[in-house]
Design a protein around this nucleic acid. Structure first.
Length: 361
DNA sequence: GAGATTTGACCCTT
DNA sequence: AAGGGTCAAATCTC
């Protein structure tokens, strides 16, 4: 860590360097015989790099002094959102978050402010209908409620260490009406308790991760479906939610399916749902997409993809679990911060490389 | 007895 | 006002 350089500066530089590298690659590809898909892929990555650089600039410009992230400061948690690694991108949310933490009793207000994302988990039949298994975190059930129009009640869980470590992560588990083996799990907030850091696996390069796909609990045919079905990634979407106006904007985008062939992740395609809520809700917390058996279906923000810590979090080993991924859906809440400049689909670039060596060095 | 779960009531959001 | 989310007392489990 270069002492005097802030995280955002380094990130910005890294983005720009990466963009340059990619441009060079593109140049070489233009000379060599490369597929249009490859070129397209490179172009997208370049655009993504520069878009993110712009984002960083914008945030740093609008926020003044960067905040030291809680996670970095305490070592207790993992960056929740890409920007939040060292940053609290949106001061209003940051402040609201703080306020929430101060006003512990006013939990209802947290409904709005904590980052939220949804995973869908299919349990294997041998697990019965008891619900998704342990996701590596300790949860305590604090409520159950019948939901209008839903066959099954919704269960509410919160982190066991809520009181002792002020960890405000919660989750809701809702069984699908149509498929009893399918659970929709909505996470709110991320773990700031010791579980968060403990759950981080030893760093592994994306390449290695590729070779070791998270298939421990994936039913083969489904895994195969994900890998082979070109429609799979195209189902993904970015949902942007303007928290200020409570307006949900969906920005459907499709991955160039062939472009994925350029990615090493082809062998172990990890469905990525770009949860841009991480931009807004979780800047004061670590955004760990709870890599759980319940969430083989990962949600990542584009920055998380760049964030080794966050990335490793979502890549945690789940060998002890048996749930499989629900591959055909991607219901994910994805609020995004307000931006003065338009974000086109490439902003949230699903192709954004995980393998950016030295990005955070 | 400590911790987890259940469940009805309360409160907040829409 | 309705529905959803949380609280907290009662109950259960180890």
């Amino acid at each position: 860590m270069e002492g005097s350089w802030s995280w955002e500066q380094k990130t910005l530089i890294s983005e720009l360097i990466q963009g340059m590298d990619l441009a060079k690659q593109l140049k070489q590809n233009l000379c060599a015989k490369s597929s249009p898909e490859t070129r397209d892929f490179l172009v997208q990555r370049i655009l993504s790099s520069y878009e993110k650089a712009l984002l960083i600039l914008k945030w740093s410009g609008s926020m003044g002094q960067p905040h030291q992230p809680l996670g970095v400061a305490t070592g207790m948690c993992v960056p929740e959102s890409p920007i939040s690694i060292n940053e609290s991108p949106r001061s209003d949310d940051f402040e609201r978050g703080l306020k929430d933490h101060q006003d512990l009793r006013d939990s209802s207000k947290k409904r709005k402010t904590l980052p939220r994302w949804t995973d869908q988990v299919r349990v294997s039949s041998e697990n019965g209908l008891e619900g998704p298994q342990d996701d590596g975190y300790s949860w305590r059930k604090y409520g159950q409620k019948d939901i209008l129009g839903a066959k099954y009640p919704r269960s509410y869980y919160r982190c066991t260490f809520r009181n002792t470590q002020s960890c405000w992560s919660t989750k809701q588990v809702q069984r699908s009406d149509d498929d009893p083996y399918l659970f929709e799990i909505t996470y709110r907030g991320t773990h700031t308790c010791s579980q968060a850091s403990n759950s981080v696996p030893p760093p592994t390069s994306p390449e290695k991760q590729d070779q070791k796909p998270n298939n421990h609990n994936v039913i083969p045919q489904q895994q195969q479906f994900e890998h082979s079905n070109p429609k799979f990634p195209s189902n993904l979407r970015v949902i942007t939610e303007d928290l200020e106006h409570r307006q949900v904007v969906e920005s459907p985008f499709s991955f160039p399916s062939t472009s994925y062939g350029c990615m090493k992740s082809e062998d172990s395609f990890t469905p990525l749902v770009l949860d841009t809520e991480t931009f807004t809700g979780g800047f004061s917390q670590s955004f760990i997409s709870p890599a759980t058996p319940e969430s083989n279906y990962y949600t990542l923000s584009p920055f998380q993809m760049n964030n080794p810590a966050a990335f490793h979090n979502v890549q945690r080993s789940e060998s002890e679990h048996t749930e499989i991924v629900s591959a055909n859906t991607s219901a994910t809440n994805s609020p995004i911060p307000e931006l003065d400049f338009p974000l086109d689909p490439v902003d949230i670039d699903p192709n954004f490389p995980f393998d950016t060596p030295g990005f955070f060095s």
